[in-house]
Design a protein around this nucleic acid. Structure first.
Lengths: 143, 143
DNA sequence: GCGGCGGTTTATACTTACTCTAAATGCTCT
DNA sequence: AGAGCATTTAGAGTAAGTATAAACCGCCGC
């Protein structure tokens, strides 16, 4: 488990950022904390709204920059499943996703539940970044 | 193999569209033919440019509508792998993709080369649309 | 304290992929 | 011809994300 409690303290977040060589500024801690408290898949727009709910705290540019930085440093993970927006996932352990094409909702699947075998060998100059499995689904409206 | 030759004739395309309950209009045939001649992953923008290369033939709206229609009817397949644009893939046989995060390039992998097992059972009201595997990769620039 | 400096944040304008709308066009049937 | 329906069109609109240039912040040497 990444944190002792489900809702990490500010200092736990500061530590997490430092661990990943990220300077823990006010805005970055605010955003990261929000991600790890909610522990859900969020889009940049969600973060922007949540972070500025009461008073204007963080600009749009900083939200995008911070999410990009966190993803690049491996603190969170980008999920490309919705053609309209990128989701960010605080769960970086190996897992995959179910994507509801109607609602846009994303759900986790533990990597243990799915196995991928026989990945093709990659050329030397090609570095594997990750394997994403998206199970696309439509939940029928109840009749 | 879908077509006898690598470059399907107009009448082969017309037949393909009719088979999928698509009224084979001038624009749709033009676009579909282009897809099946190139047989590569293309974005809507590519199609728009190619189709209007010499003279203005098809409007932007029609390009998007047609690609959407072809995908919906199963003639081609949408690939969500690049956060910036949707790709369309004329190869509808079961296969997956390697996505180069640097160049944005997509490459096919035959489904036989990868196997997914233990897909989780889905609730009754949920209909499986498909399973997409994207192998994210970075090709290092040659030193 | 003060000036400078790199890193960070900001407002705002911009880009880009894609969608919407309402009018025009075309096709078919009588 | 003309009614009725499907299709296409130009152009405006939307929304996610990026670029830019100025302001700000923390820190270090003086």
């Amino acid at each position: 488990m990444l944190f002792a409690s489900k809702t990490p303290t500010e200092s736990e977040i500061v530590y997490l950022l430092k661990e990943h060589e990220i300077n823990p500024t006010y805005q970055r801690v605010l955003i990261a904390r929000l991600l790890f408290v909610g522990r859900t898949h969020v889009a940049a727009e969600d973060v922007f709204r949540a972070v500025n709910k009461d008073s204007p705290n963080v600009s749009k540019a900083t939200v995008y920059n911070t999410l990009g930085l966190l993803a690049q440093k491996g603190v969170i993970r980008e999920v490309i499943a919705d053609p309209d927006r990128v989701f960010y996932d605080p769960n970086t352990s190996p897992h995959h996703h179910i994507y509801d094409e109607i609602s846009g909702e994303l759900t986790d699947i533990d990597a243990k539940e799915v196995s991928v075998t026989n990945l093709p060998a990659l050329p030397d100059d090609v570095e594997l970044q990750g394997v994403d499995i998206v199970i696309r689904v439509r939940r029928n409206r109840k009749k």
